[in-house]
């Protein structure tokens, strides 16, 4: 647990929860990123601008954070090209088939005590943990 960062993780989580609450309170929308993106493709007139602006906000939010972060830790993506493509396809396909991702099912759905979201979250957490275990420790690791 050498890299455990409890404070920044917890406060970051509070901000994510506040953002999801803000979107529901002001606009009546669930802050589920896969749905916000998925229903932007193709864009529907009158329903596209808020989606694009929310997603632009995500990027600018990280950008802003970096400006004020005294130790810009950067990010590390270990996956090579075939894994990036396979991973992207699975995430895009799976979240749209399952009707949500970490934000929609995980953050918003659990708060509403939605049985679908609780089952979805437990399912994707389980398959993600198994996948990492197989890749890192199971397949000749």
């Amino acid at each position: 647990m050498a890299n455990f960062t409890p404070y920044s993780a917890f406060i970051g989580g509070l901000l994510i929860g506040a953002a999801a609450s803000l979107l529901l309170w002001l606009n009546g929308k669930i802050a589920g990123v896969s749905g916000i993106l998925g229903q932007l493709l193709p864009p529907v007139k009158g329903d596209a601008a808020w989606r694009a602006l929310f997603l632009a906000g995500l990027v600018l939010g990280v950008f802003f954070f970096r400006l004020f972060d005294p130790m810009d830790r950067g990010i590390a993506i270990a996956a090579d090209l075939p894994v990036l493509i396979a991973g992207g396809l699975l995430v895009g396909f799976g979240t749209r088939l399952g009707g949500g991702c970490t934000s929609g099912h995980g953050v918003c759905g659990i708060a509403r005590l939605s049985l679908r979201s609780i089952v979805a979250t437990l399912t994707f957490l389980a398959t993600a943990v198994v996948t990492v275990a197989l890749v890192r420790h199971g397949l000749g690791g």
Binding site: V33, I77, A79, T95, F124, T131
Partner: peptide, 18 residues
């Protein structure tokens, strides 16, 4: 099924959509 597939992709790369 969709959530299970999503989890595999998440575990492969470490990215979820947001």
């Amino acid at each position: 099924l969709g959530s299970a597939i999503f989890g595999v992709g998440w575990g492969l790369v470490g990215f979820c959509p947001g």
